[in-house]
Amino acid sequence: MEIRIQGSGPTAPFLSARGLFETEHDLSLPVDVHIREDPDERTWAAHYDDRHVLNISQQAASSAMARELALHEFAHMARHEQNHPSHTQSTEEVLYLALAGKSVERRKLSHCYQIANHMKDIYADDITLSVGPGEKLLAFLESSLAMAVADRPATPTRAGLERLSSGSDPDITAVNAAFALALAERHDLLEDDHRLYDLAYAAAMDAPDVDFEGFKCRFRELGRETDSSTYRQTLVDATRSYVASEGQAAD
């Protein structure tokens, strides 16, 4: 597996991630790592006929999660080379199939893309967690969810319920929480009393119209082996379930 690192930043996390990845997997195409100065760049991958590209900010490349972020992106690259349905299925096609004849607000539509990304991440992290430890990923999931969930009750809502999540959109926060729990449970990363459960259920309480348990089950039980038709229908069903949470009516 060939890695070519460009930009100013540490190289050790990428070489370490490659070492872990190569214990069970390999990539046919080389990987160009571009370390960017922009702190908002975070990480994202692109795929071309002759190479993969991993873009990452200097801040992320120097963080404690750098190796895990690189390993996660290598896993996405592997799924891309495998032509895995989660990485070849057009999200736009699924939205057309799932939402034809429905009026959907832009906010909810953007959330549907996030749901598709979660499914991609599930399959990528099946690789990530087969070659690397899960402790840092679990801590990352916990801290990310904690940022979107308040530590203490805020102003009661009209129904008398205490709003538990922060300024983040409560509906997609609940879906994100379902994803975090599902991934952790899928790979046996959690003890029964882990704080992630409290955070996730707090997020779920703030979005009562979202089928939190249903989404957790959808993510956790994604078939380890799947074909294009099955995967497409699974994503269509998830999209329809999420949009139906606000009772969207057909035009």
Score class of each variant (00 low, 15 high):
C217Q: 11
R186F: 08
D121C: 10
E142C: 03
D126N: 15
S130M: 05
R195P: 11
T234I: 04
A249Q: 13
A207E: 00
L99H: 01
T11Y: 00
F21V: 13
R152Q: 10
I127H: 05
E162H: 14
D40H: 10
E191S: 15
L20F: 09
I35L: 06
Y96H: 06
Y201L: 06
G167C: 00
E92C: 05
F21W: 08
D209H: 13
R106N: 01
D209L: 12
D49N: 10
R67V: 12
P153V: 03
A178R: 06
R218S: 10
L97V: 02
H187L: 10
H187E: 07
P39H: 06
E213N: 11
D49P: 08
V104P: 00
L190W: 04
Y242T: 00
R152V: 06
R107A: 12
A200H: 02
H111Q: 03
T226D: 05
G214E: 00
H47T: 07
L129Q: 10
L161H: 12
L141Q: 09
S166V: 12
Q114G: 07
H34I: 14
A182L: 05
R152E: 10
R36E: 15
A238T: 02
L235W: 01
T155F: 11
L69G: 03
I5Y: 01
S110N: 11
I115S: 03
Q58K: 13
F140V: 11
K216T: 11
R186E: 04
S86T: 06
A182G: 12
V53E: 13
K120P: 07
K108Y: 07
D169C: 06
D209A: 14
P156F: 03
D209Q: 12
D198Y: 08
R79C: 15
V94P: 04
D237R: 07
V210K: 06
G7W: 05
L189E: 08
